[in-house]
């Protein structure tokens, strides 16, 4: 009886050491799988009706969220895990570079990869930039450009679009950089940190 007590104490001590070394490990290793599985389930659930009825279910699943400068939509409040590998697809005018810079600037906990085959998620979209014309300069006294961009984030395994965001800035002080950072800021909202 006495010989078992030190052994039990040792087991408890080792468990405490493990928990201290990786505080999230004990919980995250259990719940992280469940969360990702839940996301997968929700994603597949979203993708299934989309194949049969293309327009109606997609519109019903999109939930708008409040945003100061753009419109944000998430599908069934889907989230993506931190440090997931994300590929940013080439966009018109090289806007993908500004999104990647925005992700870093806004400290979004995602790993951007340049190889699509190594990614779990993909960000794609479109952007448009309109320079200030003479009339705007004369009447408005503004030389800032108009920027608009729209992006979507999709799960590469299921093909489901889990997040969408569009931004429009009438007088963008920092041009495309501002639009890229706005996109990154809102992507951060759906990342589980």
């Amino acid at each position: 009886m006495h010989s078992k007590n030190p052994l039990i104490a040792l087991v408890v001590a080792l468990f405490v050491v493990c928990a201290a070394a990786s505080p999230q490990f004990a919980l995250s290793s259990i719940f992280y799988q469940n969360d990702s599985a839940q996301d997968q389930k929700s994603a597949t659930k979203d993708s299934q009706p989309a194949s049969s009825e293309p327009s109606k279910p997609a519109a019903a699943d999109l939930k708008p969220a409040s945003s100061d400068e753009g419109q944000l939509a998430t599908v069934n409040n889907a989230k993506i895990p931190a440090y997931a590998k994300v590929y940013v697809a080439p966009m018109l005018g090289g806007f993908e570079n500004y999104i990647i810079a925005g992700l870093r600037n806004k400290k979004v906990p995602l790993i951007v990869v340049v190889d699509r085959a190594k990614a779990d998620y993909e960000i794609s979209g479109v952007s448009e930039s309109e320079k200030a014309g003479w009339a705007k300069m004369l009447f408005m006294g503004s030389q800032n450009s108009n920027e608009q961009a729209s992006i979507k984030l999709s799960d590469l395994k299921t093909g489901a679009v889990i997040f969408g965001y569009s931004v429009h800035k009438a007088n963008s002080i920092r041009g495309r950089q501002s639009a890229g950072e706005a996109c990154a800021k809102h992507i951060k909202q759906i990342v589980i940190d």
């Binding site: 500004y98 810079a101 870093r104 790993i111 951007v112 990869v113 340049v114 190889d115 190594k118």
Partner: peptide, 8 residues
């Protein structure tokens, strides 16, 4: 293939 730094 990871992007380690970016700047605009």
């Amino acid at each position: 293939s990871e992007v380690i730094w970016s700047y605009s």
